[in-house]
């Protein structure tokens, strides 16, 4: 009996993620590498690395979905789907009771409503500014001379919080410079930054509402302080995947699998 394998390749602005699954949906390998400046090269490198972990060759992968902002640059993909659909499907696979997905990605954030089968019902994305995204945190980490892990480890939600704009990354950076000049403790600034992102996400959540369980995806889900503040704001416990960055790639792999089986059934493959 032939064995089928499927892959999702998520080329994001900060990281490129690959997930490979078998026909039962079991995850065989997952990988995350920085995208750097060339999405196409990052996709090739990440895919090869993910394959190495499985002992499969490129020819052994039955279908591949490209997703993420660089999805068009993945020449070896057999299909492409937006990261919005992919995060919905990926979150559903990991937490089947998910009704709402909050994805805080590198350059944009989304709130996605999905049905009981993981299909998208509605979504909203942040507007043109990077406020409320991973890039926002990266810019601020640079300004605070912290690495992202240090920024992520702060979980002092009861502590003091410096007021920081949630509408504009550039304004927020100026505010951080002013706060540093006034010797405001970095812990308070970090807390203020986390609150700023949470406020931004909150306004998106309120525009489409919350249904079912809420799953948080994207690299920012590693930020413990932000997760705690978001849970406090939403008044619920979030589902946090073990690998929040690869949820889009996982969804892509499942979409590839589903599309392949539909094409088999309809006799087009």
């Amino acid at each position: 009996m032939a064995e089928f394998y499927f892959a999702g390749v998520d080329v994001g602005s900060l990281s490129t993620d690959v997930s490979i699954i078998d026909d039962s949906g079991k995850v065989l390998s997952e990988i995350v590498i920085p995208t750097s400046v060339n999405g196409s090269e990052a996709a090739e490198a990440a895919f090869d690395s993910a394959l190495k972990l499985t002992n499969l060759s490129r020819d052994g992968i039955t279908a591949i979905t490209a997703t993420g902002y660089g999805r068009a640059s993945v020449a070896f993909a057999t299909g492409k789907t937006t990261e919005i659909s992919c995060h919905g499907v990926g979150a559903h696979q990991l937490f089947p009771k998910t009704g709402t997905v909050i994805d805080i990605g590198g350059q944009d954030s989304k709130v996605i409503q999905i049905d009981s089968r993981g299909r998208m019902l509605d979504f909203t994305m942040n507007d043109k500014c990077a406020a409320g995204t991973g890039r926002f945190l990266e810019v601020m980490a640079n300004r605070l001379e912290l690495d992202l892990d240090e920024l992520s480890s702060s979980k002092n939600i009861q502590g003091e919080s410096a007021p920081i704009s949630s509408t504009c990354t550039v304004f927020a950076e100026s505010e951080v410079i002013s706060l540093l000049a006034k010797n405001t403790p970095r812990e308070e600034i970090v807390h203020g930054l986390q609150r700023s992102i949470v406020n931004r996400i909150w306004s998106m959540v309120t525009s489409i509402g919350i249904e079912g369980e809420v799953t948080l995806t994207g690299g920012v889900a590693h930020n413990k302080g932000l997760v705690a503040l978001l849970e406090e704001k939403l008044g619920l416990t979030l589902n946090i995947p073990e690998n929040p960055q690869t949820v889009g790639a996982l969804g892509g792999a499942h979409i590839a699998r589903r599309a392949y089986h539909i094409s088999l059934e309809s006799g087009t493959n």
Partner: peptide
């Protein structure tokens, strides 16, 4: 979508439109 009558289409708007198409197609 929000437009300032620019003559290009942003990556974000492409994603919005494509995702909306996927939703309708589903």
């Amino acid at each position: 979508l929000e437009t300032e009558l620019e003559h290009h289409i942003s990556g974000q708007d492409k994603t919005r439109i494509e995702a909306f198409t996927e939703l309708l197609f589903d």
